[in-house]
Write a protein that binds this DNA or RNA. Structure first.
Lengths: 342, 342
DNA sequence: GAGCGCCTCTATAACGTTATAGGTGCCCGC
DNA sequence: GCGGGCACCTATAACGTTATAGAGGCGCTC
């Protein structure tokens, strides 16, 4: 169907191997021949057949980014950078949607797609340390976000405990005393929700504030809807919170909206902080104070690490990389009317 | 490296071809042999090498979904469905981010990735009818959204003129008289922005309202930020609008926020409507009235059509399919405080 | 001026599949 | 008991690429 190396070889009057060398630069080719071959390539419009190349090379040029949900803007933003970076390095990124489903994560991990992808970037939610350790596939794996620690794989994440602490400190400094956490996980120690709760507790202790179990709301998932439900219950308490840290921005936005529904002023009656710095929070009413992780850095680093492993490069430095983050104070805690979009 | 057909063949004591037939069911295989082969497959953990299969079959099993931006929730929601549907049909979906860039769209269209993907779903923004007609690649193409018409390719979209009209009619019925449109395109007739402006004009005419050029705001792009900027200028007019239709929900949300910044009440002073029904609008303050296209249907249909073309199936029915849409009235036009999330 | 090495280039064998053309053995009908 | 047909299976040639081994020509050294 398409134009193949053979066609070019015939046209240019050289051997197959020479054309291949012109295309790949694996072996040097004489200047005159190179030009003749290049001319033939341009004329016939040759593009390499990647299936054949991959078969021969034993690689597919595909890497997968597996995230729990694409409709969470945090992951969409991450994916956008990752796609670009992968392309830059000559790889094609395929998105896998685990939907926070245990089986889906497990399947990806164990490479039911064995021959399809050269490597996997996984944001684990349900899958645990043991499963990662017991992983059968032989392709490189890079973990992003929290969930699994102490495994022999690259791992890019922020320090969730510290991030959470920073958020709480901000609330304490602005005079808040009854601070709630919305979006705690269901029991599993490994999930980042757990780490963020830990940071919350540590920061409360630092500030000399008591930890109250009724102010920590567990949610089934981590969307806006969950934030709304949890916040409604918190606001119905005899002593409702005067501030809330959401597990992520989506939950915080849900909490924000629930507060409005209940007739509470944000931040006068209750301040709200999220984590992720999704664009939505820069335009919400009020705009959302948040902890901003270096998303671009996370995505880029993950892709680069993975590709380096695939290509067998010597990767120096530790397996686990903690990327920076910072607090961005906006209306939902400061009250100072800001300009939207900043 | 991996386990190949050959290994299975040796283990089961049959020929290569037989194993292939067990795997693919191309030719019938005796029950006893089938079981022996299947046992070997299970024992050794065989998975087909897709590169080889694709080389042989001339297909890659990959289809691409090219959208202008993944961080627009509308497209993220679309992509999520498309990924799932593609997987169901045995294809892997790769996301291409055109960033609304002309060159990127053109490259994809003309298959600089010729051998990589079996088909393309494109949401065209910059590329025009002529370019689609002149397309060099021989792989099937399905267009989604507006932008290009009257081309010999499948095309899935809503009737933008009608959608826009419906939105305006809703505003007129609630007593609005100075209705603005935010997010008109820059001059190119083909973009859906143009069609939505047309629907806007038609509906105004129907209602006996005059069309005023100063109420149609052109924006460079279609994000929240653009909505904010355009709305600021509209509100600075001597006679500011009492209602706004945004090109999409993101623009509408920007407009909403700009109105709040300017101290205007929504919807008392100015009503706001968007198009897309992204989840964000169900939790914003106020919640956003919008035109909801049948996103799932669009994504599913696009993938199915494409796969049908790739597999050479007879596709009946017209090339262009218009999918349904409906108006969802929320606080930003009704004022009636709703419950968030609906 | 013969030998050696280098620089180009070629021939060819994989990589793991699938499809085509053929080959068994067995049962059936005559 | 023998040819024909069928059901099942095998051998093998592609698909387009890359890597390996090696062949030819030319200049350099001694």
């Amino acid at each position: 169907m398409g134009v193949s190396l053979k066609d070019i070889a015939e046209r240019a009057g050289v051997s197959l191997a020479t054309v291949s060398n012109v295309v790949n630069g694996y072996r040097p080719v004489g200047e005159r021949t190179r030009q003749r071959v290049q001319a033939a390539i341009d004329e016939l419009g040759y593009t390499p057949n990647l299936s054949a190349r991959h078969l021969r090379r034993g690689r597919t040029g595909l890497i997968a980014l597996a995230i729990p949900e694409l409709t969470n803007p945090y992951f969409a933003e991450l994916a956008e950078v990752a796609i670009h970076e992968a392309g830059r390095l000559g790889y094609t990124l395929v998105m896998e949607n685990t939907a926070a489903d245990h089986e889906a994560e497990s399947k990806l991990l164990n490479g039911s797609q064995r021959h399809v992808i050269d490597g996997l970037i996984l944001s684990p939610v349900r899958v645990g340390r043991e499963e990662v350790l017991a992983r059968a596939a032989d392709t490189p794996l890079v973990l992003i976000g929290e969930g699994v620690h102490d495994v022999p794989h690259d791992h890019i994440a922020i320090d969730n405990v510290a991030a959470s602490r920073l958020a709480i400190r901000h609330l304490v400094e602005s005079g808040r005393r009854r601070i709630a956490f919305v979006g705690a996980g269901r029991g599993d120690d490994r999930h980042s929700a757990h780490l963020r709760v830990r940071g919350y507790r540590e920061a409360l202790a630092e500030a000399g504030l008591a930890y109250r179990a009724e102010l920590v709301a567990v949610t089934a998932r981590f969307g806006r809807r969950d934030g709304v439900h949890a916040m409604r219950q918190l606001l119905a308490l005899d002593e409702p919170p005067d501030a809330v840290l959401g597990y992520n921005d989506l939950i915080a936005i849900g909490a924000l909206r629930a507060a409005v529904d209940a007739g509470r002023g944000v931040p006068e009656d209750v301040a709200v902080v999220g984590i992720d710095d999704i664009e939505e929070g820069r335009f919400s009413t009020p705009t959302l104070t948040t902890i901003a992780p270096a998303k671009e850095e996370i995505a880029r680093l993950a892709v680069r690490r993975l590709v380096a492993r695939i290509e067998g490069a010597e990767v120096t430095g530790p397996l686990t990389v903690q990327t920076p983050f910072r607090l961005i104070a906006r209306e939902s805690t400061t009250g100072a009317p800001g300009r939207a979009g900043t």
